[in-house]
Measured scan of single mutants.
Amino acid sequence: WIARINAAVRAYGLNYSTFINGLKKAGIELDRKILADMAVRDPQAFEQVVNKVKEALQV
């Protein structure tokens, strides 16, 4: 799951650890299995999560 998430978030200019930190700051409580599945099956929803994380990180 970690490898999938890392590959997906790198397309948005983040790395895995920064993304996970941003999830916590944004108050998003999705587990890694769901995030990895979302990255593959629903990229639009995953992009929305990434955008919320970037807002929380102020990137």
Rank of each mutant, 00 (worst) to 15 (best):
G27A: 09
Q44T: 07
V59D: 12
E47L: 12
E55Q: 13
N21G: 08
Q44S: 09
D42T: 10
R10I: 07
D42R: 11
A36W: 15
A45Q: 12
N51W: 14
P43N: 04
N21K: 11
P43V: 07
I20N: 06
F19N: 00
V59H: 11
A26H: 02
F46T: 00
E29H: 14
R32T: 14
N15A: 07
V53P: 00
A56L: 05
F46A: 00
D42C: 08
Q44N: 11
P43A: 07
R10M: 10
D31N: 13
V50S: 01
E29D: 13
A26L: 08
E29Q: 09
R41H: 12
A56E: 09
L57F: 05
A45C: 05
D37N: 14
E29G: 13
M38G: 02
L14H: 01
G22N: 03
T18M: 09
A56R: 05
E47A: 12
N15S: 12
S17F: 14
A7W: 06
A11T: 11
F46H: 00
N6M: 05
Q48F: 13
W1H: 14
N6I: 03
Q44G: 09
A7Y: 07
I28K: 02
T18P: 02
K24R: 08
I34P: 05
A39R: 02
A45Y: 10
P43M: 06
L35H: 02
V59S: 15
K52L: 10
I5Y: 02
Q58K: 10
T18V: 11
M38I: 09
V50Y: 02
V53C: 08
N21H: 13
F19A: 01
A7C: 08
V9C: 05
K54F: 11
I5H: 00
I34W: 14
N15W: 05
D42H: 09
A36Y: 15
I34C: 12
A8R: 03
K24Y: 14
A39M: 10
Y12F: 12
L35N: 01
N15Q: 06
P43G: 04
G27S: 08
Q48E: 08
A36T: 03
E55Y: 12
K52Q: 09
I34N: 11
Y16Q: 02
F46L: 03
L14Y: 04
K54T: 10
A56G: 07
D42A: 08
E29F: 15
K33A: 09
V49R: 02
A8V: 03
S17Y: 15
K54M: 11
E29P: 14
R32A: 13
N21C: 12
A8L: 05
N51K: 08
V9T: 03
A3V: 05
A26F: 03
V50I: 09
I20D: 09
I28V: 08
D37C: 08
L35T: 02
G27N: 14
A8T: 03
E55C: 07
V9N: 00
I20G: 03
N6D: 15
K24M: 11
V59Q: 14
D31P: 09
A8E: 03
A39S: 11
R4W: 07
L57S: 07
Q48M: 07
V53R: 01
N15M: 07
K24H: 09
Q58S: 14
A39V: 08
Y12L: 05
F46I: 02
N21A: 15
K54Y: 06
Y12D: 01
L23N: 00
R41A: 13
Q48Y: 09
P43I: 09
L57R: 04
I5N: 00
S17D: 11
W1D: 15
R41W: 10
G22M: 03
L14D: 00
V59L: 11
V59F: 14
W1Y: 15
Q58I: 13
W1T: 15
G22I: 02
R41P: 02
Y12N: 02
Q48R: 13
A45P: 02
I5R: 00
P43Q: 05
L57N: 06
A7R: 14
I28L: 07
R4K: 14
K25F: 09
G27F: 08
G13Y: 02
V49W: 03
N21T: 13
V59R: 05
D31Q: 11
F46C: 02
M38E: 02
V40A: 13
A45F: 07
S17P: 06
I20K: 09
L30R: 08
K54L: 11
V59A: 14
K25T: 10
N51L: 13
K33Y: 12
F19L: 03
K54D: 01
F19W: 03
Y16H: 03
G22T: 04
M38P: 01
F46K: 00
K25R: 11
G22H: 03
G27H: 14
K25C: 05
I20Y: 06
A3Y: 04
E47N: 07
G13Q: 05
R41E: 14
V49S: 01
N51D: 10
G27L: 06
V49L: 11
A11E: 07
V40L: 08
L30D: 07
Y12E: 02
K24S: 09
W1Q: 15
F19E: 00
D31R: 14
V49C: 06
E55L: 11
A7T: 12
I5D: 00
A36S: 06
A3K: 15
A36Q: 02
V50W: 01
R41T: 13
F19R: 00
I20T: 09
D42M: 10
T18C: 07
T18I: 10
R32I: 15
Q44K: 14
G27M: 08
N51V: 12
G27C: 05
F46E: 00
W1A: 15
V40I: 11
L35G: 01
I2D: 02
K24D: 10
F46S: 00
F19C: 01
Y12V: 03
K25N: 07
D37V: 08
D42K: 13
L23K: 01
R32M: 15
W1S: 15
V40Y: 15
I20F: 11
A7M: 10
D37I: 07
A26Q: 07
W1F: 15
I34T: 13
V53H: 00
W1P: 12
L35M: 06
R4T: 15
D31K: 15
I20R: 08
L35P: 00
Q48S: 11
L23A: 05
A36L: 14
E55K: 12
K52H: 07
R4L: 15
A39L: 07
G22Y: 03
M38C: 07
L23F: 05
R32D: 15
I20A: 11
F46P: 00
R4P: 02
G22K: 01
W1G: 12
I20V: 08
A39F: 07
N15G: 06
I5M: 04
K25I: 11
L14F: 07
D37K: 13
R32C: 14
E55H: 07
N51T: 12
N21Q: 15
L14K: 00
R41I: 13
L57E: 04
A36E: 02
A26E: 04
I34S: 08
F19V: 01
Y16K: 01
R4N: 06
I28T: 03
I28D: 02
L35K: 01
V59E: 10
D31G: 08
K24G: 11
T18K: 12
A26C: 05
K25V: 10
N51P: 00
A45R: 12
V53L: 03
F19K: 00
L35R: 01
L30P: 10
N21P: 04
V9F: 02
N6F: 03
L30V: 11
F46Q: 00
L23R: 01
F46W: 10
A26S: 10
G13E: 04
V59T: 13
F19I: 01
S17N: 09
D31A: 13
F19D: 00
N6Y: 02
K24T: 07
D42L: 10
A56F: 10
K25A: 13
L14V: 03
N15E: 05
I34K: 11
I34F: 12
A7L: 07
D37P: 03
L14S: 01
I5F: 05
W1K: 04
W1V: 15
D31L: 07
L23Y: 06
Q44H: 12
A8D: 01
A56Y: 08
A36K: 03
V53M: 04
V53N: 00
V40T: 15
P43T: 06
G13K: 04
G13M: 03
A3S: 09
Q58Y: 10
A39Q: 02
A3Q: 13
R10P: 01
I2E: 09
I2Y: 13
K52I: 11
P43H: 07
Q58V: 08
V40N: 09
T18E: 05
